[in-house]
Design a protein around this nucleic acid. Structure first.
Lengths: 207, 207
DNA sequence: GTCTATAGTGAGATAGAC
DNA sequence: GTCTATCTCACTATAGAC
């Protein structure tokens, strides 16, 4: 709460500190959720990563669920920013491929996945969060448009329901193949990304 | 331990009961792990599902980790049985497709997935289990043969490393697309399986 | 071997001083 | 707002009667 005797700049500075700390908490949460499961990540982990006491976390976020939801909402916002930044003249198929490539690049550096894996406890938390669902709908609508356009151009298989295409793209963002190949140590990150993009769009069968 | 005064049939019956109970425990574990994350599944869940006291579980399996590992090893054995049962004259590509279809059918009925999803705590447990790793190697070798054969026949893209093909097939066994589509309620289980098999082998792009 | 009851532990969340 | 210390509760695992 702003004190009347405090100069505006001072308050603004404090507010910036507050926001910066909150940003750091969200960053750490994203990274940790990229490394381990929701249940396995503890509030102590987050507090230690940020370098503050656990109790302080609760001054910013009222629960673990709220913290992780906020982190995912932020990720969704970043996706939106990325999508909006794609050149308008880029063909829809290339936009879709760019999105998958971008998601995989986040995934392979252990940043928080765009979507939780199957059976993740986080999934139930997110599905109960209105902000997350709204953001997801917005992003899905945008991607859905491009899918329909790419199908109209005959570049995406028009016999596949757009929803199936959409989910198949989303699923790349938590694709375990990336982890397998990375653990194998045989390929560079860039190679892994390209291989997964290829199998996603071209399939396994020979063309 | 067998008592000397007990007739063999009686003992055999008791042993069968013991094995049947153990089988029931493994079954319940598989089903529960298909429904929720490893961390979220409690030993109480298993005990309640089987209808025995939690303490009795520990007479059969010394820990949660051992129980779940045993369940996964059993799944792997079932995969081996399925693979061995495929007709020898079936073309390798069809064998691979049959395997994916079979995995998806297990997945869609919420049976335990062949592989844990990304970031699952179960993953660390399994990677420390020798029986599981041995079983996985055996199955992988068999599938790997078929992949190489299918590539030699020009039916699987020969420019894809066999390991990438293998992991891509494995990943179908925990594919979140199945969950998404099933929750959507728009498609039957059989339709979902076929759609995912198609996108796996043929990709999203038009042919 | 099965049960009830409980010990032990770890993590989410809070109290209260500063 | 941040901290230390603590509460509370759920879950793994075990003790001990039958």
């Amino acid at each position: 709460m702003r004190a009347m005797s405090t100069p505006p700049t001072k308050v603004s500075f404090k507010e910036q500190m507050h926001l910066a700390r909150e940003e750091a908490i969200l960053q750490a949460t994203c990274r940790l959720l990229g490394e381990k499961a929701y249940d396995a990540m503890t509030m102590d982990d987050v507090a230690n990563a940020v370098g503050i006491a656990k109790a302080s976390l609760y001054k910013h976020f009222s629960s673990k669920e709220e913290l992780c939801s906020a982190a995912m909402v932020q990720i969704l916002a970043r996706v939106r920013t990325y999508l909006d930044g794609l050149a308008a003249e880029m063909p829809p198929l290339e936009k879709l491929q760019a999105l998958v490539r971008w998601s995989l690049e986040r995934l392979i550096t252990n940043e928080m996945p765009l979507l939780p894996s199957r059976n993740s406890s986080l999934r139930a938390v997110l599905m109960a969060n209105k902000d997350y669902l709204n953001g997801l709908v917005t992003v899905s609508d945008q991607i859905g448009e491009w899918i329909v356009q790419a199908q109209a151009q005959g570049l995406i298989n028009p016999t596949l329901p757009p929803m199936v295409v959409l989910y198949t793209l989303y699923a790349r963002a938590c694709d375990p193949v990336v982890t397998f190949l990375k653990d194998g140590g045989q390929y560079s990150d860039a190679e892994i990304v390209e291989l997964v993009v290829r199998t996603c769009f071209d399939g396994l069968s020979a063309r």
